[in-house]
Amino acid sequence: QVALSRTQVCGILREELFQGDAFHQSDTHIFIIMGASGDLAKKKIYPTIWWLFRDGLLPENTFIVGYARSRLTVADIRKQSEPFFKATPEEKLKLEDFFARNSYVAGQYDDAASYQRLNSHMNALHLGSQANRLFYLALPPTVYEAVTKNIHESCMSQIGWNRIIVEKPFGRDLQSSDRLSNHISSLFREDQIYRIDHYLGKEMVQNLMVLRFANRIFGPIWNRDNIACVILTFKEPFGTEGRGGYFDEFGIIRDVMQNHLLQMLCLVAMEKPASTNSDDVRDEKVKVLKCISEVQANNVVLGQYVGNPDGEGEATKGYLDDPTVPRGSTTATFAAVVLYVENERWDGVPFILRCGKALNERKAEVRLQFHDVAGDIFHQQCKRNELVIRVQPNEAVYTKMMTKKPGMFFNPEESELDLTYGNRYKNVKLPDAYERLILDVFCGSQMHFVRSDELREAWRIFTPLLHQIELEKPKPIPYIYGSRGPTEADELMKRVGFQYEGTYKWVNPHKL
């Protein structure tokens, strides 16, 4: 086992960053958080920038500027975001240094004079007029057009580079997404736009490419001749908990499936790229999406959770019991969808996408189930092999396979070949997804960000279904809070070829 401390991990990262040409360590950078008073800024962006600063992973002359409508001070920003920093008493001095680099400007999102004030403020910072500028839009999409237009007109660096990070949702359907994309691309070049999907920053999602293309053993079996089906799962054990009003506007397909799960599907299904260059990788992902037809209604199961009468606390409440959810809402909190990649490698292999709230566990994984062994000599005792990439929690890679049961006879039983990170790298604290992705933006690497043509294809696949749901308002199937979801989803999976045995229990190697 390799035991690495946080300091050692960050030392390795620093070495990698400083050796590259793309990370300008000594240049002045300004990180501007648009929507600095909001939840995302408070819980994710400010803490992430602090962790990067604490670990010495930001360029040395980096300033952080918050911008929002609320009249706040840096002290206010500190008060609301610091509880999420997880700072230790030993880091007190470092924390003071961090907040000394912070400033805040209040202004409207659609007022040109406010942006001119913001620009004057940035120019007044040390070497601010020639600094590289990175704008993070932690804002609702309704203000994107006004904000990007004003940034472009008043706040661009004339000497350094300018980059803009856009948070999902990128529209509600193909038409609104196209409108937003066309607007942003009329102001910024594609190499300046970073559409963030934080799932692409997760260690195991990034590991998929290495697993596939750096190991000879997987190449020959990664196709329709050997793989019976692919299941991509995202499960949350909690409901909307008072935030249903926002969720109800989008629903589970827009929230998770059309982005996170579809991105994971691309990494499983794509061909080997010409290189690890950002556009070479994204070219292959677009090719996969172009091979997927629009979702067919007979390959869809929609569910909505109801309270568990035997549960406790939140578990007793259904989705419609959330006071922020519109009365009688038919918005799905669970969806199972089957897609097919219609190309030579994957023809006929079902890709089953499942996601839901208020389920029995927290889990995100990719599961490849292989065909049955031909010419069975073990009297149907063999179960199908599976390769599982567990994204969260407890990152893991393992192969479910058959071995001989101890004893006199040739009785096979299920076991696993474990390729888990935790076994080799004991207690290594890896940077989280937002840390990686923000560092990628500083480096100018777009590999783990969504390109406009990729986004367009993703919406093309799901828009007809979303429009049909909005028009017909089908009643989702009720499922109990804390269950596996509607049984109809299991029946759909069985119908397209997935075999669920229920006889195997994964042993978490992190707890051995």
Rank of each mutant, 00 (worst) to 15 (best):
L492I: 15
R424M: 05
L466M: 09
I377T: 10
N308T: 09
E365P: 02
E470K: 07
T420R: 06
N259M: 04
A396V: 06
T399Q: 07
P431G: 11
V286C: 08
E361V: 06
T463M: 02
R424S: 06
C266H: 03
L471D: 15
A489K: 04
N411A: 12
Q468L: 11
E284G: 10
P412N: 13
Q258R: 02
P406W: 05
E294D: 13
L289I: 14
N411W: 06
Y421Q: 01
G318T: 06
P323Q: 14
L419E: 01
C443A: 12
G444F: 01
K400R: 10
Q381E: 14
T276Q: 11
Q258K: 00
L368S: 01
A315F: 14
E414W: 10
K400E: 04
L387I: 06
Y305G: 00
L353V: 08
D347K: 15
F370W: 07
K290W: 05
M264A: 07
V388A: 09
N308M: 10
T403Q: 08
Q468D: 11
Q392E: 03
Y425K: 05
G328N: 13
K290D: 09
C382Y: 14
V391W: 03
E395M: 08
K287W: 06
R354K: 11
L320E: 07
A335Q: 03
E472G: 13
M493P: 06
K363Y: 00
L492R: 01
L492C: 07
I438N: 00
S452R: 11
R345M: 10
T324K: 09
A336V: 15
Q296L: 14
V496Y: 12
T503W: 07
Y421N: 01
F449S: 02
R254T: 06
V288N: 07
A358S: 09
A358V: 00
F410D: 14
T316L: 14
I352S: 00
S415F: 04
E491F: 10
A364V: 12
R362I: 07
Q258S: 07
V428Y: 14
E414G: 09
M402Y: 04
K473W: 09
T330V: 14
V288H: 00
K400V: 06
T463G: 05
I480E: 12
S275Q: 05
L437V: 07
T487L: 14
E414Y: 09
E414L: 12
V256T: 09
L262I: 14
A458L: 04
V281I: 12
P273W: 00
I253H: 04
A315L: 12
Q296H: 15
L261H: 05
E472H: 13
F351M: 06
Y319W: 01
M264N: 01
A297F: 14
L320H: 12
V268E: 02
I438L: 11
T420K: 06
P273Y: 02
Y504S: 06
E416S: 09
I352C: 00
P476K: 02
I292M: 12
V373T: 11
Q304R: 08
D283I: 00
K473I: 09
I377S: 09
Q296S: 10
A269L: 06
K405R: 12
N423Y: 10
Y305D: 02
M493C: 14
Q258D: 01
E344R: 08
L455D: 05
K505W: 10
R345F: 09
H371G: 09
D280Q: 11
F442A: 14
G422V: 15
P350F: 03
D279C: 09
C382A: 15
F370R: 04
K404P: 05
C291P: 04
L267P: 04
V428M: 10
P323W: 11
T403P: 04
I389T: 05
V388Y: 02
L465I: 14
E416R: 00
Q468E: 14
K317E: 12
D347R: 13
A374C: 09
T331D: 00
R384T: 05
E271C: 07
G407M: 06
D440N: 09
V373C: 09
E284N: 08
G311D: 11
V288P: 03
M493K: 10
H371I: 08
R495A: 12
K285Y: 01
G356S: 04
Y305K: 02
V450A: 09
E488L: 10
Q263P: 04
Q499M: 14
G356E: 02
D347P: 07
F351D: 05
G303D: 02
E491V: 15
R327A: 14
L439S: 10
R367Y: 04
R354F: 02
E414D: 09
N259L: 00
S415G: 15
Y504N: 05
N299Q: 13
M264C: 06
L359M: 15
N298E: 12
Q380G: 14
R282C: 01
K426E: 09
P412R: 07
Q296E: 12
F442P: 00
A297C: 14
V366R: 03
A332E: 14
Y421D: 06
M447E: 00
G497Y: 06
G303S: 00
L492K: 06
E435F: 03
Y500F: 14
L471G: 15
V325I: 07
Y425A: 06
R390Q: 12
N259I: 04
P309H: 12
G318K: 06
R282L: 00
S329E: 05
F409E: 14
L353C: 06
L339D: 00
W459F: 03
S329N: 04
H379V: 13
L265C: 09
K475I: 12
V428F: 12
L387Q: 01
L430A: 09
P478K: 13
G356N: 00
F378Q: 05
N385T: 01
W346K: 04
W346N: 00
S483P: 04
D255C: 03
Y421S: 03
A358G: 11
W506T: 04
V337S: 14
C291A: 12
G303I: 04
K357G: 01
E342V: 12
T463E: 07
K357Y: 02
N394Q: 13
R367Q: 05
M408G: 07
P431M: 06
A458E: 11
Q296V: 13
L430V: 09
K317P: 09
E435H: 08
C382M: 13
T403F: 14
D376S: 09
G318D: 13
Y479Q: 02
Y319T: 02
W459T: 03
A364N: 03
T487C: 12
G356C: 02
G407C: 08
S483Q: 11
R345C: 09
L430C: 09
K505I: 11
Q499E: 15
F449I: 04
G485I: 00
A336S: 15
K473H: 14
A374N: 15
V286A: 08
Y398D: 03
K426A: 12
Q304Y: 06
T333V: 00
R362C: 08
Q381P: 13
K400H: 00
R424Q: 05
S445I: 08
E457L: 09
A433N: 05
E342S: 13
P323H: 15
D432A: 10
V349P: 03
L339S: 07
L261M: 10
H379R: 10
Y434K: 04
K317I: 11
V450F: 04
G307M: 08
G313W: 09
